[in-house]
């Protein structure tokens, strides 16, 4: 009996240990960014570097908030947050709606040309960004699109294939009895899709949505080019890269880290909010085969 309890206890300890290792692995580099963002230039240059910001002379803990002050005084950065939110949200919604339509067709309906369609959609995203940039820029100038809209459209290049493929695989997994029983009840296929499939795959939708959102939030190269002529439309990654030092060549490393830390927080909050929904959707027992 005692050995059994010990075994369970040991298992528990093992589990928490594993959890701790994972958390440290994932969060420590981020902690290092936080640590760096709270240092002055002199503190950053110290050898050896310290695990918390310390004064170079006295070695007392000394936190520097100037980097955060600087980014809040930077109008472009704050505007970047607004722009990024607009672009990433619109991209995600567009990619989820069109993607789930396409995925329903590809995962649940029988029609000619299904496989070519699947591969064509994937082919959209098989080139490196640098390669397609010039062509894309030409398309956007020809169409005369404004910067925000061109980013949303251009981000379809990598978000749409992703949402379509992931959702297709999830739709396909759902047992066909669900569809059949709905059809018996007189529902049209589209009603089945909207009323039954979508709610059932909520976790997949939220997951793909989150990943697509972050991908759009983080995109740099397209945004740099498309907003070059329109500074008002710059997104966060571009705004951060426009940070400069006091003089040319100086890299404002502390400020960059402060910005990185600061813009990661809303994304993490977003995850927290939506994760609850996933768990809720699941425990209600909706997804039972």
């Amino acid at each position: 009996m005692q050995t059994k309890i010990a075994k369970i206890g040991l298992k528990k300890i093992g589990f928490w240990l594993l959890l701790a290792v994972i958390i440290i692995y994932l969060a420590f580099p981020f902690y290092w960014a936080v640590n760096s963002s709270l240092k002055t230039q002199a503190q950053l240059q110290m050898t050896p570097g310290t695990f918390v910001p310390r004064d170079p002379d006295t070695m007392e803990i000394s936190v520097f908030l100037g980097n955060y002050k600087a980014i809040f005084q930077n109008g472009e950065f704050l505007r970047g947050i607004v722009n990024s939110t607009i672009v990433a949200t619109a991209t995600t919604l567009l990619a989820l709606v069109t993607g789930s339509f396409a995925a329903f067709a590809l995962g649940k309906l029988r029609f000619r040309g299904r496989k070519p369609a699947l591969y064509m959609i994937l082919a959209m995203t098989m080139f490196p960004q640098v390669t397609v940039l010039t062509g894309l820029y030409a398309v956007i100038t020809t169409l005369g699109l404004d910067a925000i809209f061109s980013m949303i459209l251009a981000y379809m290049l990598f978000t749409l294939p992703f949402t379509t493929w992931v959702l297709t695989s999830f739709f396909k997994d759902l047992p066909k009895e669900i569809m059949e029983s709905a059809q018996v009840d007189g529902a049209t296929p589209f009603q089945t899709f909207r009323l039954i499939l979508l709610p059932l795959t909520a976790p997949a939708l939220v997951t793909t949505g989150l990943l697509a959102f972050i991908a759009a939030w983080n995109e740099y190269l397209f945004a740099l080019t498309f907003t070059s002529i329109d500074p008002e439309a710059r997104t966060i990654p571009v705004a951060i890269n426009y940070f400069t030092g006091v003089v040319a060549r100086q890299e404002p490393f502390g400020e960059t880290m402060a910005a990185a830390v600061f813009v990661t927080i809303p994304v993490v909050l977003l995850v927290l909010i939506f994760q609850k929904r996933i768990i809720a959707g699941l425990t209600s027992g909706a997804v039972k085969g």
């Binding site: 940039l133 740099l224 080019t225 070059s228 500074p231 890269n241 426009y242 400069t244």
Partner: peptide, 17 residues
């Protein structure tokens, strides 16, 4: 019109223009 401080980024942008 401000452009990035990183020379390669700036060059890439100019080339696109």
């Amino acid at each position: 019109l401000d452009t990035p401080d990183l020379a390669d980024d700036r060059l890439g942008l100019y080339l696109q223009f």
